[in-house]
Design a binder for these strands. Structure first.
Lengths: 334, 334
DNA sequence: CTGCTTCGTTGAACCGATTCAGCCAACGGT
DNA sequence: ACCGTTGGCTGAATCGGTTCAACGAAGCAG
């Protein structure tokens, strides 16, 4: 039942090398021979062994994707994009989830090295991962997703977070809001830091006041909890901008439970535009990020790098996010 | 930079077989030798090549997980559970998403066979997949997740959908509802069919009336669209039970947009209890399924089967889902 | 002292592909 | 008739591990 290329060869009355050619460069094989091999393969139900192939050829056609939170629809979309692109190019995507845990992240990296992946896509959640350095030392191409590479020796596909933060505040200001709550995640996450820079920059330009709030993790529950602080704060906040949609949805729930009306009492904006935001009970205005595209493009780039080797030149692609207006925001009523 | 076991052996002044023993059965290696090998490995930065290992040993320590919709938080949790368990046992999880597309499903199955996975976890979305039959022919253990195996020759970890459907209706009846809308997905999906059986069974027992509605896909948007039909139907429905949470969230949004109050005007129940349901604007009563546990257990079972071979006896484990009561349901006001 | 285990180690054969130098027509040009 | 080229095919060597029969040394019993 476990058939090898040799079984195929003998049944088709050809040499093993010819079968290998048939598999990899069918044009080098004559029509008649091709047919013989085809039927032998069908008869024997032969499927080539990827391990053997990789071992000899050196290249594995497996791309690793390491995300910090597979529970977040944003990363789920990234994975879909990368997975589809990988499939289309006959690569295999190995998806790993680190649950924002550095230990799991390092462990996965080790497994990926054992698998001899030909390239890695990663949204690094921590600075200076030992594993990533290891990848570099082994010359395994790595591209960052949703995080700009600081070195020109590396590719990345990321979003302009500064611009995203800025445009949300600008939009709120245009609606007449002058006192805005900004609910951010840990500043150690590069994306959060940049968004905050954008927020503060815009605040200065637009002459609006920002009230900062913090969550430790960017999940719904954290947003729910921080909302109390916002409600209790003495400042007359009329709009709330959250660093991601999960947090915003948590805030939304807390506000509604406290009898607040959205968008009348508070305008609310999230970030990422995950699917659930559009179908939330109060559809959420959000800063949309093309997650699927991010994943697909990153996969395409790493495939190019793998296939073109040295000729490949690294790129740092940065997309501009887009404001998507829905029911959770409206002009401030005087 | 690409070091092999032979490089390690020569640097440590031992035979290759000894290094292999060190890697796989350290207890068979003397203390002194062990140290020599350890430092050689560290010096050379050696990481074993999984392909070579798998090729010779025959077993791949890679488990495939094929889900129909990675966008659904239910499957995301299943994947987390399976992934964690796999890691703990030094297996690699290869997660594939078929997007409910039979073609993608077959393609992934082919790749998984090429990879010579040692076992497959799958939530089959279609009957009689050619690929699954192929797996059987090759004696690759397969266990179903969230779907009971019909053959005793196969393991499965699933939920009692009949019970789930039944208990939702029973609960609604206990609140005084006598006219219930039941929004189901395609009956070709086994889970949907069983839930419907449970619903109808309970309806007879409790003497309540069921009004059936259908969605083609079980996503939020479909729920949003079907809600109009419910609102326009002449029947005096006071409660709505949806076959999954995504659909229920869509229905919820549509109802609120039409000025309906939940749970006052309609009681609403979903299925799966995904994270977003708890933090929906009106937290959703739902039939909870232990997704993480499902994935973790299924992974554990397939690992047992892989490691114990023939001695292993197949099990069909069925969990009972659990009603989780939240704000979207209350007793009918007369 | 001899015979029997046990422990630690050895290294050649092997897993199933790919690679590549080399071979044999067949063909075309002169 | 001869030579050069090209297309198609061959099969041994190889990738980097694991496996396993075999072996030497040490320990122990009688």
């Amino acid at each position: 039942m476990a058939n090898s290329i040799r079984d195929v060869a003998s049944r088709a009355q050809v040499a093993v090398g010819t079968v290998s050619n048939f598999l990899n460069r069918p044009d080098r094989v004559a029509e008649a021979t091709r047919k013989k091999i085809e039927s032998a393969i069908a008869d024997l139900n032969f499927v080539p062994n990827a391990s053997a192939r990789h071992l000899r050829s050196g290249s594995s056609r497996t791309i690793g994707l390491l995300v910090p939170d597979i529970t977040n629809p944003f990363f789920t979309e990234v994975a879909r994009g990368a997975g589809d692109t990988a499939s289309e190019n006959d690569y295999t995507l190995l998806l790993c989830n680190s649950d924002e845990d550095p230990k799991k992240e390092e462990r996965h990296l080790k497994v990926l090295i054992e698998q001899r992946i030909c390239g890695l896509l990663i949204t690094p959640s921590f600075e200076g991962l030992a594993g990533v350095a290891e990848l570099n030392r082994r010359n395994i191409p790595t591209t960052f997703i949703d995080r700009k590479a600081e070195s020109l020796e590396q590719s990345s596909v990321s979003m302009d977070d500064f611009y995203g933060g800025k445009s949300a505040v600008k939009y709120l200001a245009s609606l007449g809001h002058t006192s805005i709550a900004w609910v951010n995640g840990p500043l150690s996450i590069a994306q959060c830091a940049s968004r905050e820079d954008g927020v503060m920059d815009s605040a200065k330009e637009q002459k609006v006041k920002i009230h900062k709030f913090q969550v430790n993790q960017m999940r719904s529950q954290n947003g729910y909890e921080v909302a109390k602080n916002i409600l209790e704060s003495t400042s007359q906040v009329t709009a709330i901008f959250c660093a991601n949609d999960l947090v915003a949805l948590g805030v939304l729930r807390a506000l509604l439970e406290n009898g607040k009306k959205i968008p009348t009492d508070y305008a609310l904006i999230g970030y990422d535009d995950i699917g659930f935001s559009a179908s939330a009970s109060i559809p959420l205005t959000s800063i949309a990020q093309p997650a699927y595209k991010l994943g697909a493009l990153a996969a395409q780039m790493i495939i190019n790098e793998v296939e073109n080797g040295k000729k490949f030149k690294h790129e740092q692609i940065v997309f501009k996010p887009e404001l998507v207006i829905r029911a959770s925001t409206q002009a401030l009523r005087k």
